Computed example of a mutant assay.
Amino acid sequence: MLQYPVAPGLFERRAELADTFNSAVPCRHVVIDDFLDAEYAQRLYEDLPQPDEMPKSRDYMFSDKRELSTLDRHSEISRQLHDVFMSKEFAEFLEPLARHEVFIDPEYVGGGFHAGAEGSFLDLHCDFNIHPAHQDWLREFNILLYLNPGWQPEWGGHLLLTDDPSVPTIEVEPRFNRLVIMESTDRSFHGYKRISFPPGRSRRSIAAYAYSIVPVGSISRHTTNWVPRDGSPFKRVLAKNWNWIVLTKNKFFGSGTLKNRR
């Protein structure tokens, strides 16, 4: 087996982790602590682009976050993580979770480096299902690597998960070197509440998305579906119609998720 900067024996645990994933509620997911080799994880954190070097997401009106999808070419350090995600071993690791073949988007559209500064938030939502640039790519998994050393619960920023926005969510702490793999469906609502990190700190993560191949036109395309729990009546009406607004905008001006590979 090729050597990658992941914890020893991780790939061999795929059957056990698949059982955890497929039995999890309310959305299928699995939490993997110490995903990366500890020394490499620290180097990766120190090498992250600064939030002010990253553009603000254009298609996420119901949030306040920055993203930059250049994991494959930001540095040699981040390239090593890209190589993990692109490897045959990682694809085989994901296959028992999906029960069929999946692959990672090599350009990290909508993913890559994510940062949320003091006061940032991400309202509950389900992600777009069909890739903006590939009509036969169906999104299957969100793969979220958290890089928040010394994280404290009072800072907030927990990943919220539910299959029904009207009921309480479960919360996953965004601890350092923690990987969360969660299904991406029309019912996998997720987000995080407004955070209160110390000055100079931000909520950091790296996101990759797994896809499968489906016949073109076999699944109705939708963009991000938002269900904000707080806010004005105008915000709620806007969220309800957001899918139509963004699809119309993309038709004429293109997707903002395709414009952050500087």
Rank of each mutant, 00 (worst) to 15 (best):
A115F: 13
A115D: 08
E118H: 15
E118L: 06
E118F: 11
G119R: 13
G119M: 07
L122T: 09
D123A: 15
D123L: 11
L124R: 05
L124I: 03
H125R: 06
C126D: 06
C126E: 09
D127K: 04
N129C: 12
I130G: 01
I130R: 04
I130Q: 02
P132K: 07
P132V: 08
H134S: 03
H134A: 07
W137C: 05
E140P: 04
N142G: 02
N142I: 06
N142P: 00
I143L: 05
I143N: 02
I143M: 02
L144G: 06
L145G: 03
Y146D: 00
Y146E: 00
G150N: 10
W151D: 04
W151M: 00
W151H: 09
Q152D: 06
Q152T: 11
Q152Y: 04
P153L: 01
E154S: 08
W155H: 02
G156S: 02
G157M: 03
L159T: 12
L159K: 04
T162F: 02
D163K: 05
P165K: 01
S166W: 05
P168K: 06
P168S: 12
T169C: 10
I170L: 06
P174C: 05
R175Q: 13
F176H: 14
R178P: 00
R178H: 10
V180N: 06
I181L: 10
M182V: 13
E183G: 09
S184C: 09
T185R: 13
T185L: 00
R187A: 09
F189G: 03
H190V: 09
H190S: 05
G191N: 04
Y192S: 12
K193W: 11
R194H: 10
S196V: 12
S196P: 07
F197Q: 05
F197D: 04
P199Y: 08
P199T: 11
G200E: 03
R201S: 12
S202P: 04
R204V: 05
R204S: 09
A207E: 09
A208E: 12
I213P: 02
V214H: 08
S218N: 10
S220R: 15
T223D: 14
T223L: 06
T223A: 12
T224G: 03
V227T: 09
V227A: 15
V227P: 02
P228D: 04
P228F: 14
P228I: 13
R229M: 07
R229W: 12
R229Q: 13
D230Y: 12
G231E: 06
K235Y: 12
L238I: 08
N241I: 14
W242A: 12
W242V: 11
V246R: 11
T248S: 15
T248F: 14
T248G: 11
T248Y: 09
K249E: 09
